[in-house]
């Protein structure tokens, strides 16, 4: 039992964090929810409309289609991150000569700003001047330039490729940190018990890495589910609606159509989708530290 004096002192210690959280997270969230009940231009017009925006969002299949497209996008991006990230983390965890150089090189995509990555890949994909078309035409794989970002069939895949390239280093570094925290003694004990390399991976590495993997999975999924910048730069949600993920739709509602109320309602729904995903993962894999 804490004395009231030490309790007060504790309160003072957590005060900066509480104030920061209230100002930067709680207030915007509550304000966003508040706006979703209004038809507003945020300055002079504040018409209370109740649940109208929510009803409107679910009155057709458009929003659900966007959510499904976003889930589809997120699924492939996260799968890509984990396949590449895990593979590279395992390699980087080996005691090989010059491995630090590779660690530095492989983390580079994560260090570039998203805007830079978007523009860089946009130029690489360019049908007239882009590197990909030039190389593919030179080796004879294609006869005419392909508009990678301008064709509905290829634009979605192109956006996923860019997102995987940008995001795999974060997964790689987190898993590498997780791998390095597994005590060597456990592997040694497993070896003494006659464990093979693959069995050690299955029965030692994976269980020990699971807490880090779950946290990484939640972070990565939520992060890419609400991703906006690179898709906006690459395709602006097009062509047609091929890459029109939910964050692009919210942005357009707010800053192109100036429907701030509807945009807020959509954002609140996305918040719940993200929360549900996190909850689902925790239920599925446990809390990670069990």
């Amino acid at each position: 039992m804490l004395s009231s004096k030490s309790g007060m002192r504790g309160l003072w210690f957590i005060m900066p964090a509480v104030v920061t959280l209230l100002l930067l997270i709680t207030y915007p969230l509550i304000y966003g929810a508040y706006i979703s009940f209004f038809d507003t231009n945020l300055i002079t017009k504040w018409n209370f409309v109740g649940l109208k925006h929510y009803v409107n969002i679910f009155s057709n299949t458009e929003f659900v289609e966007r959510i499904l497209l976003t889930l589809h996008y997120t699924f492939w991006v996260v799968v890509g991150h984990f396949v590449i990230g895990t593979g590279l983390a395992l390699i980087l965890n080996m005691k090989l000569k010059g491995i630090t150089v590779f660690r530095v090189i492989l983390i580079l995509p994560w260090l570039f700003p998203e805007v830079v990555v978007g523009l860089l890949w946009k130029w690489l994909f360019n049908p007239l001047y882009g590197l990909f078309n030039a190389v593919l035409m030179k080796v004879g794989l294609i006869d005419d330039p392909v508009s990678w970002l301008g064709d509905e069939k290829t634009a979605f895949a192109a956006v996923i490729v860019v997102s995987i390239w940008k995001g795999f280093p974060m997964v790689m570094m987190l898993l590498l940190a997780g791998l390095q925290s597994i005590p060597e003694d456990i592997y040694e004990a497993a070896r003494i018990d006659g464990c093979t390399r693959s069995a050690a991976f299955r029965y030692v590495t994976l269980p020990a890495l699971m807490p880090v993997m779950v946290v990484t999975l939640i972070l990565d999924t939520v992060w890419w589910f609400k991703h906006f910048t690179m898709i906006w730069i690459l395709t602006q949600g097009g062509p047609g609606n091929a890459t029109n993920v939910v964050s692009i739709d919210i942005f357009k509602q707010a800053f192109e159509f100036f429907n701030f109320g509807k945009a807020s309602a959509m954002a609140i729904l996305v918040f719940f989708v993200c929360w549900l995903m996190g909850y689902g993962y925790r239920r599925l894999f446990g809390n990670g530290d069990d």
Binding site: K122, P127, P145, S147, L149, G150, G238, P239
Partner: peptide, 11 residues
């Protein structure tokens, strides 16, 4: 149909 525009028109 007519192909009178450069490739990548939506970009």
């Amino acid at each position: 149909k007519h192909g009178v525009v450069p490739p990548g028109v939506t970009e």
